[in-house]
Simulated scan of single mutants.
Amino acid sequence: MNRLTKTLENNTNLFHNLEGKDISFQALEMNDVQEIHNYASDENVSRFIGWQLMKTVNETHSHIEEMLKRESAGTHLYASIVLKLTQEVIGTAMIFNFDHEANHVEIGYVFHSSHWGQGYGTEAVALMAEFAFDSLNLHKLHAQVVEANLGSLRVLEKNGFKLEGRLKDYYFIDGSYYDKILLGKFRSK
Rank of each mutant, 00 (worst) to 15 (best):
K158R: 13
A143I: 10
N149M: 14
V110L: 13
F133G: 11
H61F: 12
E101S: 04
S152D: 14
H112C: 07
I90F: 02
I81V: 15
G184A: 14
I107M: 07
H139W: 05
L4R: 01
G108V: 01
V82I: 14
W116M: 04
V110C: 06
H112N: 15
T92W: 08
D179H: 14
F172L: 08
M54R: 04
Y178L: 09
F131C: 11
S188K: 12
G151W: 14
E59C: 05
L28D: 01
Y171V: 08
L68G: 04
N31A: 04
A73F: 11
K140I: 01
Y39T: 01
M54T: 01
I23C: 04
Y78Q: 07
G184H: 10
E29L: 05
G121K: 00
F96Q: 07
Y39Q: 00
F96L: 09
K168N: 14
Q34P: 00
G108I: 00
M67S: 09
G160C: 14
D134C: 13
L85C: 03
Q144D: 11
K84C: 04
E65G: 11
H37W: 05
M128A: 08
E157Y: 07
Q144W: 12
G165V: 11
G20R: 01
N97S: 09
H112Y: 03
A148V: 04
A73W: 12
V33S: 00
T92N: 15
L138Q: 01
G119M: 01
R187Q: 12
K162L: 15
V82E: 01
G50K: 05
A79T: 03
T56M: 08
V125E: 00
H76D: 14
D134N: 15
A40K: 04
L153N: 11
N11Y: 07
G117S: 14
H104D: 13
A124P: 00
D22W: 03
E43Y: 11
S46H: 02
A129E: 06
D179R: 11
M67Q: 11
L53G: 05
L167K: 12
I49C: 13
R70E: 12
F161Y: 09
I49H: 00
T86L: 02
N58E: 15
Y109I: 13
N103A: 11
S80Y: 02
I49V: 15
N2S: 10
T7F: 02
E106Y: 02
E66Y: 10
L156T: 13
M67W: 10
A102P: 00
A129H: 05
R3N: 09
D22C: 04
N137Y: 05
G151I: 13
V89A: 14
L136Q: 02
L53D: 09
N11Q: 09
K168P: 10
W51N: 12
V155H: 12
I95R: 00
A124T: 15
H63V: 04
H139C: 06
V155K: 12
Y120M: 10
H115I: 07
I107V: 15
E35C: 02
Y109R: 08
G74T: 06
